[in-house]
């Protein structure tokens, strides 16, 4: 029987890996943003597990900072996607790699 801390860290690792796979294999730029969210969430889960392991509030403080950063990142990212969609008329991230005008 594995300990709760080990189980929580393994769950965080699995979720982070799923987010990383999705980030690598997708070409739709909204899906890439969602997979960044999956990875941030997994990192927050690891912080919460560490906080309950040591009984210290620092882990939850870090999770609140991750939450604030995710909110700011999503708003700016969606605005960038909107600009990209108006410029290129597509959500293919490979289209944006050509750097033309």
């Amino acid at each position: 029987m594995i300990s709760p801390t080990t189980a929580g860290l393994i769950l965080a690792g699995i979720l982070f890996t799923l987010g990383l796979i999705s980030m690598l294999i997708r070409r739709n730029i909204i899906f890439m943003l969602v997979s960044v969210e999956i990875m941030l969430n997994a990192a927050g889960l690891a912080f919460i597990v560490a906080a309950s392991k040591w009984g210290q509030p620092e882990g939850q403080v870090m999770f609140m900072f991750i939450l604030a950063m995710a909110a700011a990142e999503v708003s700016v990212g969606l605005a960038l996607i909107l600009q990209l969609y108006h410029q290129l008329k597509t959500l293919d991230s490979d289209e944006a790699s050509r750097m033309r005008g």
């Binding site: 300990s3 080990t6 393994i10 309950s52 392991k53 040591w54 509030p57």
Partner: peptide, 23 residues
């Protein structure tokens, strides 16, 4: 992660009050 480490700690509840004081 599964490598044997020190004694595994129990889950401890961290109250929101402590989080607020630390924050």
């Amino acid at each position: 992660i599964l490598q044997p480490a020190g004694p595994a700690g129990e889950v401890r509840v961290v109250e929101p009050k402590e989080v607020g004081l630390s924050l």
